[in-house]
Design a protein around this nucleic acid. Structure first.
Lengths: 352, 352
DNA sequence: TTGTATGCGTTATCAC
DNA sequence: GTGATAACGCATACAA
């Protein structure tokens, strides 16, 4: 195969000419429709010689299907979304769909843009995971002419499939676990309360304490942001205010890693002095030392479920919107149970 | 905005009818071409009422541009590729391109498929990062009618822009560092030698020792695979064979994490007894404890450079193929220098 | 079985 | 300035 000179590629017209048949015959052969042996031979030979490849755009215009699906994540830097992505990709690929990625940086306008752009029909469906769901989201969702699966919570009645985590139960699992270990001064290190996860996890913490009969203490709640450095700063403040805290319920793994840094720097042992729990069970939880007990909210499962739901819609299923809730799971590691197995090998991790 | 009944969306024909003008006028207005005030008003009103959105497929067929770019990574589970992705995405987005993701699982046939599928013209360009470059790659690359940027090494004369890491210098930096710390029994824990990185890093290790005047000792080289569990297994074997090793040069971060696990389990202190260096400087390196000294091969920079190179091509630049080499950088953390700053906050990490 | 002709939704080139 | 009309590349209903 010598270096093909750039320029316009061959079309079915080129082939038709070369093979001495009509474009209809070319199309038929290429689509496996019944044709005479000789015609088929000529067409395939011409196609081969010319290095013909079907133009996906023209084909989409005709068929009204692009074989593309979009995934809109709030933040491409967030390992939790990447975990979803890792599951979504192979499912779609196996079904013959390409994946178009959008990172909206949790900007509402960007998310609305993505929904609006569905009208451009460059994808057959969308999976989206918004950080918060506004009225604008719901309007655009209602107007969408393309199947959409939302990872996160949407109000009942929304015309979109919905895959949810259950962070309420998740926090409960964690707090119960800490309580069972004998911890009684369990603090909460949360992210901003105006985000969906922040609000949900904060409320769940309060509920969990209540059910355990533990008093709720404002001093034990520290708001920061969902990043490692912010988490560290928040925990430093917390320790200054409440030195005798014996457990930290962190609203995500990054915060928890920041917590480990600060606890270590302050000379506290984990978990002996302070037990730490994160959320999302990202790769980082298994990598840290001590390895981090974390509440898995099923990022991977949610991604997979969303992809499968969407595929069903793409196959023509137009039944009522579905709701899938993925149960949380507490993954106990060293940060709450020092002498238990670390379990760093229980997750698939990429190589090279 | 009431729930729009599903069905075919409006086209410029619908608008033309509604506005009482021709489709040509509609197109003009929509494209900002000079039109009478009144026409413009009618068209825009109709478009607004109908909730019109341009059909991207039809537009692409006509314009021969899809405003999509593909990124083909060897393994979506690998943090190093995700680091590239995180840089590529915003660059393309800012330039108005969508990102189509392919994970080829390092299967050569899949990679060739991706190259071949460029002929379908569903993307305007491609960034790919193959684990190895075969003749089949080069042939498909030569036949490509679309700009391609390869992250990795391609032979001179290949008609594709090329962004390279310099793992040779990278290994050298690491080995020099270990040597400077007084280590003399420096082992290499590598991945398979039939991969490009495996081969390059293995050779570089040998070279580095030579330049330092250290003897090369087969016993100090252990081949495993580029995963954490494999790395752990390899290091266990190594320790059994060479108990007095005082430094480990690991071919990537995952291997290094596995090494930390095993060293810890064997009662060795890091870095006091054994210093450990990883490669790729992934997020995991900063998260682990002790935090991991790692050679950054500039995954992020390479991704960014690749995206920018591709954008230049998409803007029409058809000059000779470019070669960009990103210099490696040693990021010293606790696994080789116990009392230095951990620096866990020097990298941007995702939140929530 | 095969060819002719039409449409998918846009953009662009003409005359008017 | 505006309206017919012809592509873009493919699939297909219909006629032959």
């Amino acid at each position: 195969m010598e270096g093909t000179p750039l320029g316009d590629g061959p079309t079915i017209n080129t082939i038709a000419e070369r093979a001495g048949v009509s474009i209809a015959s070319v199309s038929r052969v290429l689509n496996g429709l019944p044709t005479r042996r000789e015609t088929e031979r000529k067409v395939l030979a011409a196609a081969e010689e010319l290095g013909y490849v079907r133009n996906a755009v023209a084909r989409s215009l005709k068929s009204r299907r692009t074989h593309q699906v979009a995934f809109a994540m709030a933040d491409i830097g967030n390992p939790a979304y990447l975990a979803m992505l890792r599951e979504i990709q192979p499912v779609l690929k196996a079904a013959g769909y390409r994946l178009v990625l959008h990172s909206t940086d949790a900007v509402v306008a960007d998310e609305i843009d993505v929904l609006h752009s569905l009208g451009e029909r460059y994808v057959d469906g969308l999976i989206m995971s918004p950080l918060r769901v506004t009225d604008a989201h719901l309007e655009s969702l209602a107007a969408a002419r393309t199947p959409v699966v939302v990872i996160g919570s949407v109000p009942e009645g929304t015309r979109a499939d919905n895959v949810r985590a259950d962070s309420r139960t998740g926090v409960r699992l964690a707090v119960d676990h800490l309580h069972a270990l004998g911890r009684r001064r369990i603090a909460m290190v949360n992210g901003p309360l105006d985000t969906v996860p922040g609000a949900a996890r904060g409320a769940a913490y309060r509920e969990a304490l209540e059910e355990l009969g533990l008093p709720y203490d404002d001093d034990l709640v520290q708001i920061g942001d969902f990043y490692r450095a912010e988490g560290a700063r928040a925990v430093a403040e917390l320790l200054a205010r409440v030195p005798d805290v014996d457990a930290l319920m962190c609203a995500n793994d990054l915060i928890a890693l920041g917590a480990l840094d600060v606890l270590r720097a302050s000379g506290r042992r984990v978990p002996d002095d302070v037990a730490v729990v994160g959320m999302d069970d990202t790769d980082l939880a298994a990598a840290s030392w001590p390895s981090l007990t974390s509440v898995s909210l099923g990022s991977a499962e949610r991604g997979k479920a969303a992809a499968e739901l969407l595929l069903q819609r793409l196959r023509g299923d137009d039944s009522a919107p579905r709701l899938v809730t993925v149960p949380p799971r507490l993954v106990v590691r060293a940060s709450t149970a020092g002498n238990r197995a670390d379990g760093p090998y229980d997750r698939k991790e990429g190589g090279v």
